[in-house]
């Protein structure tokens, strides 16, 4: 039952984003192209599909680094217990995005549907006022104080909470440059120019074993990428899925930790 994994670090440089990592998507686009006819009637549809496939394939490069240190891995899974993933929001200058937490929860649910991941907002509401930015426990020692309230202790027993995972971090824009001009006239509309911007994500997940009231792991994910938008009549966004890659990286590691299937 007791398992200790050594600190590990993984760096990955992926281009093409999801399309490169998940062959199913680019494969389906290829089939769509192959099925289309080459006659003049279908030329417009063919071009449309081509443009769609191009947009799906054109994704910026993302550089990701994942560090992990976990202990006491539940090798037989967590059974019918539940997990809650929450964002830290007590810092004055940033707050962990709600949709990022939702993304990680969805990633774990998709990977192993036997894991019950509680919805963050529902959990915060059902435990009000103990998980507001002002009152949320910052250390595992604070769990004892929470459990002195009988109704709080009863609620935790009711939902069978086994792991509480705190995500701290955010995604920011690091740089931007370029310019684009768009115009509309009687003959049509169009844009001309070039824009580029960089994004960086820095997240750390801290896993608390709620039953034993100890911290059992930390996983961090740092990703960065540059997005581009050239425009010659039509703007073509080449977006680097920086936050999405951070979500996938953290989600994969958490899933590996919690699931008995992997």
């Amino acid at each position: 039952m007791v398992n200790k994994s050594l600190p590990s670090s993984q760096t990955c440089n992926s281009c093409g984003g999801d399309a490169a990592r998940k062959p199913g998507r680019s494969g389906s686009a290829g089939i769509a192209l192959a099925e289309s006819a080459f006659g003049p009637v279908c030329l417009r549809r063919w071009l449309g599909l081509g443009l769609l496939a191009l947009c799906a394939a054109l994704q910026g490069c993302v550089n990701a680094t994942v560090d992990e240190m976990t202990f006491m891995e539940p090798t037989e899974g967590i059974g019918d217990a539940s997990v809650v993933i929450m964002g830290r929001r007590h810092a004055p200058d940033y707050e962990t995005e709600f949709d990022f937490i939702e993304c990680i929860g969805d990633h774990i649910r998709r990977g192993d549907d036997s894991i019950t991941v509680l919805h963050e907002l529902e959990f915060i509401n059902m435990m009000y006022p103990w998980f507001e930015p002002r009152t949320a426990p910052l250390r595992t020692d604070d769990i004892d104080k929470l459990l002195t309230q009988q109704r709080v202790a009863d609620r935790f027993s009711e939902i069978k909470l086994e792991y509480m995972i705190w995500i701290d971090g955010s995604t920011v824009e690091t740089n931007s440059s370029g310019s684009m001009t768009c115009g509309v006239g009687p003959g049509g509309a169009g844009c001309f120019g070039f824009g580029t911007w960089g994004n960086a994500s820095d997240y750390e997940a801290t896993i608390w074993d709620f039953t034993d009231e100890v911290e059992v792991g930390r996983i961090s994910a740092n990703t960065s990428g540059q997005s581009y938008m050239p425009a010659v009549v039509v703007p073509i966004p080449i977006i680097a899925p920086v936050q999405g890659t951070a979500c996938d990286s953290l989600g994969d590691q958490l899933l590996k930790y919690l699931s008995a299937k992997l």
């Binding site: 059902m126 435990m127 009000y128 006022p129 103990w130 309230q149 009988q150 109704r151 709080v152």
Partner: peptide, 11 residues
């Protein structure tokens, strides 16, 4: 201002 406010979980 409008919102849904949860009842506090307290003794």
């Amino acid at each position: 201002v409008q919102g849904n406010f949860p009842e506090p979980l307290m003794d």
